[in-house]
Design a protein around this nucleic acid. Structure first.
Length: 484
DNA sequence: TGAAATGTTGGGGCG
DNA sequence: ACGCCCCAACATTTC
């Protein structure tokens, strides 16, 4: 009999066994399967993962290796130029095929296109699969054949052909070669921080596919009912917190979609409204990837070119205060501290803090994008850049520039009892609700009774919001006449 | 997936 | 009683 040559499965942002087309194709081929993850720090244009993402990646790889081991396989870890690494592995095991699931960052697509061509040139099978998105970005076009730049029609178009494909089940067993190629030690990659800043992050998150599926089910059971309103409340556990799992592909969006629908079918139509709100948020992720696919400059350049002339401020002290959560605006500081301590921030608060950086401090959105990239465990090139441009008003379907959040009103509206602020800005704990979102308005005796000295125990506001708002509107006025 | 300024309305106090 | 004014409350527009 003839032996089928081994197949390499190149894992990237798909650290899962469920709904993994590349893995199933490799198994279906009939020969041994070599799962490989390559730490790619060399491909041109790549956005190197930040500290929080590296932490997550470490644990997610460990979890994937365990899941593979439970099915008789193992994950081969390598670092370097992906094509060189693949060639080396192919040679060692005599592989005849390489399979992977697609990534959609422009730099990754350039890399993958070159690699696929190089492998095919050598007579190897090289095949890529979908699964990181609900639909492939190039399949959703307007009637005129152009990419959507407004979310609502995109959302309609995404649904018009019915549900996205059903997720494929995880394989029961994965055939291995007699000897796996040598693997790096995960610890030696030093993805974990050398100073233990990750203690709180560790307490908040469990990376890996098993935890991701458990998180999805817990969300559906506990928070889908009422999601439409509760998702805006940072003081409630009203959001899914699936973003890092989705980013690393521990969970496919198609799994999220179909499990959500199944949950509604099981429990009743009263959940349909909330479920559609949730799936709509999931579709924002696809929308961001569509924008990134069609506008590959999205992470660096204003989508609306008139913003190239925007008179941004040069305010390093302001940027530092924002990063550290010391702006003197409680809801902003709470968000920035939640980010620093947990690697994550509630979506409503992301909008508030982003608006503050861009409009109150007049700092370029790229400065916020870079900070979020480094500190978020869910840092995702598409979502991060699309969302920052959305807040700035320079992007697609963007918030009008003059839509400026008032951090006091936002705090009062979405954290009415101050539970969120008190959790992350404990020095304000004893301030009465009435003044919690605007401590500078509290009379001296009230501040004193709460043990607060503005400027000492908690910062005085670093800008006056009303004045900052006028400054931002004036700045916007200077580029308005040239609106793209 | 705002906020502030401006406009309108209607109830009630009061001369 | 009546009109005038004040000002919430709500609506519209403007940024």
């Amino acid at each position: 009999m003839t032996m089928t040559s081994p197949a390499v499965v190149w894992f990237r942002l798909d650290l899962r066994l469920t709904d993994n087309g590349a893995l199933l194709a490799a198994i279906a081929r009939g020969g041994p399967v070599i799962p490989v993850f390559i730490l790619d720090e060399v491909s041109p244009g790549s956005w190197a993962p930040g500290g929080a993402s590296r932490w997550w990646l470490h644990h997610s790889l460990a979890a994937l290796n365990e899941a593979l081991a439970a099915r008789g396989s193992a994950l081969v870890l390598r670092r370097g130029n992906p094509l060189d690494v693949l060639n080396d592995v192919i040679e060692q095991v005599g592989a005849g095929a390489v399979y992977w699931n697609r990534c959609y960052e422009p730099w990754a697509q350039r890399r993958d296109t070159e690699i696929k061509a190089a492998l095919k040139d050598r007579g190897l099978t090289a095949q890529s699969f979908e699964g990181h998105l609900l639909r492939e970005p190039w399949t959703i076009k307007t009637g005129a054949g152009k990419p959507y730049t407004v979310f609502t029609p995109f959302w309609k178009a995404l649904q018009v052909n019915g549900d996205p494909p059903r997720p494929k089940p995880a394989p029961d067993a994965i055939p291995s070669p007699e000897r796996m190629p040598a693997s790096d030690s995960l610890d030696a990659w030093r993805l974990l921080p050398t100073i233990p800043w990750d203690q709180t992050i560790r307490a908040c998150w469990t990376p890996g596919e098993e935890a991701a599926l458990a998180r999805l089910d817990a969300f559906l059971d506990e928070a889908l009912g009422g999601y439409d309103e509760d998702r805006d409340r940072p003081d409630h556990a009203g959001t899914s917190r699936l973003s890092p799992h989705l980013h690393f592909g521990e969970l496919s969006p198609r799994t999220v979609w179909h499990r959500t629908l199944a949950h509604v079918a099981r429990l009743g139509d009263y959940l349909t409204g909330d479920a559609m709100s949730f799936l709509r948020e999931l579709a924002w992720r696809d929308f961001s990837y569509n924008l990134l696919h069609h506008f590959p400059d999205l992470p660096e350049r204003n989508l609306k070119s008139n913003f190239d002339a925007f008179p941004w401020a040069d305010d390093d002290a302001g940027l530092k205060a924002w990063q550290k959560g010391c702006t003197g605006y409680p809801i902003v500081d709470a968000g920035m501290r939640e980010l620093w301590h947990t690697g994550w921030m509630h979506n409503r608060v992301r909008m508030i803090t982003a608006s503050f950086l861009i409009k109150d401090l007049l700092l370029p959105w790229q400065a916020g994008e870079a900070w979020f990239w480094d500190t978020l465990v869910d840092a995702d090139l598409a979502s991060n850049s699309a969302s920052w441009q959305w807040v700035a008003g320079s992007g697609a379907d963007a918030a009008p520039y003059f839509r400026i959040f008032n951090p006091v009103l936002q705090g009062q509206k979405f954290d009415p009892d101050g539970a969120y602020v008190r959790k992350w800005v404990p020095e304000l704990t004893d301030l009465p609700d009435k003044f919690l979102h605007a401590p500078w308005q509290a009379p001296d005796p009230v501040l004193k009774a709460a043990g607060i000295t503005l400027g000492t125990t908690y910062p005085a506001p670093i800008v006056d919001h009303a004045a900052a708002r006028n400054r931002a509107l004036a700045a916007y006025e200077t580029i308005k006449s040239t609106a793209a």
